[in-house]
Design a binder for these strands. Structure first.
Ligand SMILES: [Zn+2]
Ligand SMILES: [Zn+2]
Ligand SMILES: [Zn+2]
Ligand SMILES: [Zn+2]
Lengths: 138, 138
DNA sequence: TCTTGAACCTCTAGTCACTGGAGATCGTAT
DNA sequence: ATACGATCTCCAGTGACTAGAGGTTCAAGA
């Protein structure tokens, strides 16, 4: 049995975030001491590690709640879990695609001015003002 | 002179967002009719187009405020503008890097299970539970 | 000129996933 | 017994919007 501070140290999850996960229903409310302080066990640590890892991989709280629900039913089909994972993969790929388009335009914009002129003639400011200078959609 | 709805249509920025930009100081408060409705001119349209384009390129409201401030002083050096743009480029590149790491792990995780088993033996759930199964940091 | 109804106004609150602070209480070591 | 770090609850703030309630104004048609 260990305190919330100890749990925080072991998982690298900040204390207010742990309480937030509890309030959101991702973490079960743990036992309390007589003085009302939270005391966790190995199961709590495991659960929080799962949440942390999933968050690090970009899953939403909602998706993680669904995954935890599935975990609780070992005899159910895991189809939903793979669906959630592939949705997350699509999401990440869509974000990468968009960011690559932004990167290309930002490279062009940055190249257009060395920063030694006046704002009046600045290519950075001019290209922000006019999307038609962009080479593609973004 | 045109209404906020017309401005919204011409820029593809939603009406509450336009009001939010005004409140944030990005847009000057426009003239009003006798009945207190906003009326914009070409300058307002131009300004909002600038904001929209910069937002589409991922610049923060704060960065855009700084860029607009620079725009207002045509005789000042544009060094700060290029700094802001290259900071934005670095930011985008950092995000891409992180997302690519996530993509790799998510591909591995998704490949590990076809969704036809039980949650008990699901590789998706197992790899979310244990970062040591990951091939690299993310 | 009157009437309708779409468009507009302000204000408040909600979104997501936390993060920080105030003020009070608890746990533990000396 | 005292000190002091850790924890408690509750509230507010972040960024960049978005949505709704309840009321007013504008502009076009009769
Ligand atoms: Zn320049
Ligand atoms: Zn553009
Ligand atoms: Zn599976
Ligand atoms: Zn991992």
């Amino acid at each position: 049995m260990f305190s919330i501070g100890e749990l925080s140290r072991r998982t690298n999850v900040k204390i207010p975030t742990i309480r937030y996960y509890e309030e959101s229903g991702l973490l079960d409310a743990p036992e309390r001491t007589e003085g009302n302080q939270r005391r966790y066990d190995a199961a709590g640590l495991e659960r929080l590690s799962f949440i942390k890892h999933a968050r690090d991989l970009g899953f939403s709280i909602e998706a993680i709640a669904a995954l935890i629900e599935l975990q609780g039913h070992p005899d159910r089909s895991c189809a939903e879990a793979t669906d959630i994972a592939s949705a997350q993969l699509s999401d990440v790929r869509a974000k990468i695609k968009r960011l690559r388009a932004l990167e290309k335009e930002l490279v062009r914009i940055s190249k257009g001015c060395d920063g030694n002129g006046m704002t009046e003639d600045c290519y950075v400011l001019a290209s922000l003002a006019d999307h038609r200078l962009c080479e593609r959609e973004h």
